Structure formats: C-alpha cells, structure tokens
Computed example of a mutant assay.
Amino acid sequence: MLSAKSAEVVEATLPVVGGAIGDITPRFYDRLFAAHPELLRDLFNRGNQANGTQREALAGSIAAFAAALIANPDQRPDAMLARIAHKHVSVGIDNEQYKVVHEHLFAAIVDILGEAVTPEVAAAWDEVYWLMANALMAIEERLRAEVAAGTDQTDLWRPYTVVARHQETDTVTTYLVRPADDGSLPASRPGQYVSVRTELADGAHQIRQYSLSGGADNALRFSVKRDGEVSGHLHDNLHAGDTVELAPPLGDIFLAEGDGPVLLASAGIGNTPMTAMLDHLAATGSARQVISVHGDRDQLSHAFRADLEQLTAKLANATAHVFYEQPLGEWPAERTGLVNLSTVEVPVGTTAYLCGPLPFLRAVRGQLIEAGVPAADIHYEVFGPDLWLGAGA
C-alpha cells in the first residue's frame, strides 16, 4: 500500500493536514468551480455545497483514508471506498475528473499550508491521493460493468415515463416509472437507490439520489421528500405522463440473503429503503425473524405507515415497533419519544440495517452494540453526504 517513506511523512503531518482540512476543502471547491462552473451547475449538489455538508464529507473521507493507511498499512478501507464508488458511478463521475480534482486539491493545500508543504510532504500526500483515486477508479469500473450487464441500456442516463404518482404524506410523494423506450427494467436490490437528473428553471441539470421504496409491476418505485430545490421541483412539476431521467439502481447497502434474524431501523424518510427490504421479504415469503423499528414525529408525518402494517402482517415471524415524538391521540407511553431499543428484544445473530439522520444512527448503533450485535453486522445508509465515513461506523 503506502510506501514506508511516505507513511512516515503522512503520519507526522496528518495532524497538521487533518487540522487544516476544513480550510483546505472550501478553497479546493472555490478553485474547482471557478475553473469548471459546469460541475456545480450539472454535477455537484448545489444545496449541499451551500450548507457545507459536501465539503465536510470530502474532508472526512480524505483524512479517514490517510488515517486508515497509517493504522492498517496492509488493509484497504474497502467499506468506505465502496460507499464513495457507488455514489460516483450513480452520478457519472469519470476517471478524467480525478485529474481535475488532484490539480485543484493540491493547489488548495499549498494555498493554506504554504511553506509547510515541502517537496517531501507533497510527494507523500500525492501518493495517498492516487492510492485512493486508483482504488476508487478500479471499483467504479467494476460497478459500471455490473450495471451494464444487468440492463440493455448503453448510457448512464435513461428516460423513464411516470406511470403513477402517490402522495404518501404532505411532504412525501412516491413515483412509479417505466423505461420510455419500453425496454427491460435494470436489476436492483432492496435498499438501493436511483439517481434522478432533472432540469431546473435556471437551466441547471441537478442530480439527486432517491431510495427505491418497494416492488412494482414492471416499474421502478421511488419516493421523494420535499426538502430542497430538486425535491421541490419534482413535487411541483413531475406528474403522470411526464418523462424523467434516471441512472440504474446503485448503493452498497442492501438486504443480504440469509435466514438469520434481521432488524430494520429507521427514522423519518429513512424508512424508504427499509420499506423496500420489508416488501422483498414479504414478496419472497421469508421465514426470517424480522423486527421493524421506526421513529417519526407523529402519525401524519409517518410515510408508508400502512405499508408497514400490511407487510408485517404478511410475514410469519415479524413485529413492528413504532415510536412517535408527539403522537396524535392515545399512544403507548413506552413507544412515545425517540427510538429506544432497550424496549425491543434483539435476538442473537441479528443483522441490522439503519437509515436516518446522523444523531439517530449514532444512538441506535450504540444501542445495538450494547445489546450484543457485532459492529460488522450493523449496516447504515444516510441520505445526503456521508459525514460518518471513517468514524468507526
């Protein structure tokens, strides 16, 4: 992996570079978008750039990769790389863009750290960058081949026709779409997402990922919560009969086959991929013990509430535990407030899947570990930039 000489330099300078990464990444993005404004317009999430979460995610991933190389020089952090690679393929990142990122990232490092970036330091961190970039490019190439093998489409983006739209709650809409060319649907796994590319009023082509929310006859089903410019645009403008561009389903967190107990824990719109997993289990007549846990504000904000009840009833060995912070009407006291797994029996051998905001993920993951679930058996998905990369999650 990392050469011995570079490992020494990186280990010595990691506190300095890591401490400055919060300043380096804004400078990097400013330089990148000044040179390539089309990337902000048509590739990067403008909302996440504006609120800084994308910048935090990049900083976290680079620092975490370097730290992993130092801590475990013979082991590549593939879980972290896989998460990034799936996102990259889903939006159309190509190998040439790694050269562009390298140019502006290292210029930003020099801008911020100045004379501290000696030729030796620059060479060591250059090695870190290309180890990470080359590993990602290799994973992404394999992913693209897998996607191509599972569909008859040749381009990443494919037009789909909206065949139905359903209002789950005041803020959540589900879309059923079919290929506009009447071709076959791409393969997907329960828990994965699709990327949606749409043209906004200012002509920008913005991309967002939305989880598939269950099976449908000869159609893809995905759900959108109104919480930004793209989701709002879709809610207001995408109706039955309209056309929308989608990339094939991707995502490294999906329901694995097996016969052991499975726990699906979510908060808010995080139950979208969990609904897809539960739907798959019900459709296949699974005999697995299934424990669904969901937290929401109240009954009216709880999307897929009927789906949870119906799918749980279809399974032979399934239970559902719903927590409301502000329940409407009578609701059990032990299910009022935030999700608390101390009131839920978690059997030995459980594989857990989590989706929701970071505070929820941290809390529930801690509760599962306390209940004896190994960290390796706890899988999580977070909507938006993953600020938890490399944090031991």
Rank of each mutant, 00 (worst) to 15 (best):
S266I: 08
S231N: 11
A149H: 05
G18L: 03
H36E: 08
R178G: 02
G349A: 05
L278R: 08
P357S: 05
A67T: 06
L315Q: 05
A124K: 02
L263F: 07
W388L: 15
A180G: 07
A333P: 12
H102K: 11
R31P: 04
E103S: 09
Y353V: 11
L361I: 08
A320P: 00
A35I: 11
R305H: 15
N271F: 09
A282D: 07
M277V: 11
L354I: 07
A7D: 06
V348A: 15
V348S: 13
D386F: 09
G183Y: 10
F360E: 07
A107N: 11
I21L: 15
H104S: 10
L39N: 04
H88F: 08
R365F: 08
E370D: 15
S195D: 04
V224C: 05
Q299N: 07
L32Q: 09
R55M: 13
G215V: 08
A149N: 06
T154S: 13
R221A: 08
H36R: 13
L131Q: 07
D386Q: 09
A135D: 14
D30W: 05
F106A: 05
D182F: 12
T169C: 09
Q367G: 12
E141G: 13
R208S: 01
E334P: 01
P359I: 03
E334R: 13
V9L: 05
E115T: 09
E345T: 15
I112L: 03
A123C: 06
T343K: 14
A240W: 08
E96Q: 14
T154Q: 13
L255N: 04
V373E: 00
A148P: 10
E330S: 15
G349H: 03
V194H: 02
A265T: 01
F323T: 02
T351Y: 11
S195M: 03
W331Q: 06
K87W: 03
D78A: 14
E11K: 13
V101R: 03
L40T: 11
I378G: 10
P77H: 01
A240I: 11
F106T: 01
H321D: 08
L32S: 04
A363T: 12
G356S: 06
V194A: 02
A318M: 05
T118Y: 00
D155R: 12
L220H: 04
V147C: 02
H235W: 06
Q326R: 14
K99M: 12
G19I: 04
I62C: 03
G260W: 13
R335L: 15
A391Q: 14
P347D: 04
R305P: 14
